Computed example of a mutant assay.
Amino acid sequence: MIGEIEKIIENKLCGSVVYGKGTGSIISIGFGDKIKRKVPLRNDQLTEESKNYTFELELIIYCCWRIRTSDSIILGWRDALCDDKMKEINTLSKRKVTGVKIDPSTYDIKIEFSGDLFLEIMCDITNDFDSDDNYIFYTKSNTYAVGINSSYLK
């Protein structure tokens, strides 16, 4: 799983970042080629592009995350209720993934983007109270999920 995801996502362009009202700190990031949806989404909170298109690779993050540069933190999952600050998440859009590291013991992910930006995902969901995985990564042929206590779900 680790090597597959690292290879699949590296050198892909970040095409979309979906966040905002009704999602709390959950974010969805699309990478690679844009694909027209067969049926548009009807969520009024989404842009027309997000309603009508998906991407070849989708990463949905439920656990804690942060966006940083090499010397400062720009934004974190706790900022989800601060609309002005959350707009900073758009800095990932249209940037190329230049590196991916997945910790084999925790499945935490560090994605490096062009322009000295990093997305760090820290798996912190340790019980099923919230009924969420830490994150789910969708490709055309596979779904990779990291669940409770950083367990890889097949």
Rank of each mutant, 00 (worst) to 15 (best):
L57I: 13
G76N: 13
D130R: 15
N127T: 14
K34V: 04
E120Y: 13
I5L: 08
I61V: 15
C63Y: 01
G147N: 02
T54V: 09
C63R: 00
L153D: 09
T143P: 01
N127P: 00
I26Y: 05
N43F: 12
L92C: 06
I26L: 06
L117T: 01
K154A: 04
I102E: 01
F118G: 01
L57K: 09
M122R: 12
K21P: 02
V17C: 08
V100R: 06
K12T: 11
S72K: 14
L13Y: 04
K154Y: 03
Y62R: 11
V17A: 12
V146E: 03
R42A: 11
L13D: 07
I125R: 05
I109P: 03
L75R: 10
I9N: 10
I5R: 10
S141A: 14
M86P: 08
D44W: 12
T47K: 08
C64G: 13
V100M: 06
N43K: 14
E120T: 08
G22Y: 10
G32E: 09
D71H: 14
R68E: 09
N134E: 06
L92T: 12
S131D: 10
E58G: 08
R37W: 06
Q45C: 02
K154T: 03
N90R: 14
N149H: 04
N11D: 08
K94N: 13
W65L: 07
T106P: 00
L119R: 00
E112W: 00
K51I: 00
S93A: 08
V17E: 09
R42H: 02
G15N: 11
Y19D: 06
T47V: 04
I2M: 02
